[in-house]
Amino acid sequence: MKRPPLTPSLAARGPIPAEAGIGLRFQHHQDVVDSKPAVPWFEVHTENYMGGGPPLRYLDAIRTDYPISLHGVGLSLGSTDGLDPTHLERVHQTVERLEPGLVSEHLAWCVTDGVCVVDLLPLPMTEEALNVVSRHIDQVQTALKRAILIENPSTYLQFAHSPIPEWEFMAAVAQRTGCGILCDVNNIFVSASNHGWSPSEYLAALPPKAIGEIHLAGHSVRNVGDGRTIRVDDHGSRVIPEVWELYAEALHRFGPVPTLIEWDNNVPGLDVLMGEAAKAAAVIKNALPEDGHADAA
């Protein structure tokens, strides 16, 4: 498909800065267009902008002022069905159309026999799954002609046969495919709490140079009866103090990284999201070396 060359402003804008951005939801479209808030970048769900009409018109207006990152939820990278060519082509068209600074997807699957479960389902951490996921990431990166980031999941179950620790699996995927890692610090905390892992060990196993973005979000603690609980990543509240601490530890290891505040359910006003982003910005500032510049090494 022929498309116009980059405008000077788009070309000059460059990639996503190592600052604290916000997940853009439909209810904030008008507010962002009208008030042009001081937010360094926005991330949107790829699947929300695959059609046309009003959502895309808003995003076209917003992306003239802000760098945009595309975060997909539907490619089902771990599915033994293979990738859905229609969905991949839609992702491709959306990436061509919106020229995002970053493109990301999840270490998960949702489709079997052409039927989709609407959640990010967990994979057993096996050599077979590693092969399937790596092959599909290769396919996506070839189709999009760019590297993507893969996000570590929140999980609520463990497979009886799952011999590779998830952190090693993530590192292996990055090493095999050249993709980056979207390190969701909240997901690490949730999964580590649910399965008795050490979140610090998880962070320490990730290759710092592969980390392209960090996600922060709130989660809930669900009571399942008899005093038993499980943490569920529902993106419906503020980031909890333990996750802020883990985030500081992550930045200590990785250096300043573009960081996103995600809030997808019970979405509050933009001011609340900006307040959370300001907290992340303060942590990023602390992670900078004293001359105020990120260490390129």
């Binding site: 389902l121 057993p124 609520y156 179950l157 463990q158 497979f159 009886a160 046969h161 399942v224 499980i230």
Partner: peptide
């Protein structure tokens, strides 16, 4: 296929 511990497999699957 999955580990049942303080939460039964069915309770874990119900979250999804």
């Amino acid at each position: 296929y999955i580990v049942s511990d303080h939460l039964a497999a069915g309770e874990r699957l119900n979250i999804y």
